[in-house]
Amino acid sequence: MSALRRFARAYPTLLRIGLAEAVAYRAEFLVWMLATTMPLVMLAVMSAMTREGPVGRFDHKAFVAYYLVTLIVRQMTGAWVAFEMVREIKEGTLALRLLRPIHPLVTYSAESLAALPLRAIVSIPVAVVILLTAAGSEISRDWFNIVGFFVSLAGAWLLNFAVSSIVGTLGLFIESSMQVWELWFGCFMLLSGYLIPLELLPHWLSQVARYSPFAYLQALPVETLTGIRDRHQVLMGLAAQLGWVLTAWVTLIVLWKRGLKRFAAYGG
């Protein structure tokens, strides 16, 4: 049986297992999700500013839409596989995964994807709040943008997962790979539009952001759904995102192949 067919047959089961695990640890899971408070804090700060008038193109309503969509995008695309991988490498339990007749990256991705239904439980009420309040008028009515939003959401997940796995895989080469993650996350906060819309950053910094992968993790989906981008810009953004996704996945696969040779299952 070819690897691909085996993959297609096993994946639904892996997803089911992953979902069951997420449900089993639902209290822990809820805490993880509640920890995404940053967009709400930034919304409070921005609201204090808009009391005296709009900031750039953003008035209060626009900020509400921007940060709530940011919250949803973060919930639906976040990946924390790096923590899991580094721990398994350190404790040697990665060996158990390697014994299974299916690629470890596939099982990791299934575990990560399976958590999405639970995450949607948080995202959907937020989405309803947006649509029912004044902020709803800020959401794009163009079908092209709405379809583009969902495509970019998938792209953002693929990119996030690949980067997180790359950091995890680096655990096979260096001891302090979690510091790499912190560095990545630090840059992500500012350059992805997660804290502040990219438009409001100084010109040179927003330019740096747009050429970096970070803008395609948050800013692209958020700007697409809130109609900041027109059709042409959405298309260009999706193309750039695809480029980064491919780059990240090729890097991941090469690194994984090389790193695995160094794995020695200490304590496994």
Binding site: V45, M49, L195, I196, L201
Partner: peptide
Amino acid sequence: IPMFVLWGQR
């Protein structure tokens, strides 16, 4: 940086 960006506006 975020602080300087925000107080750059106001």
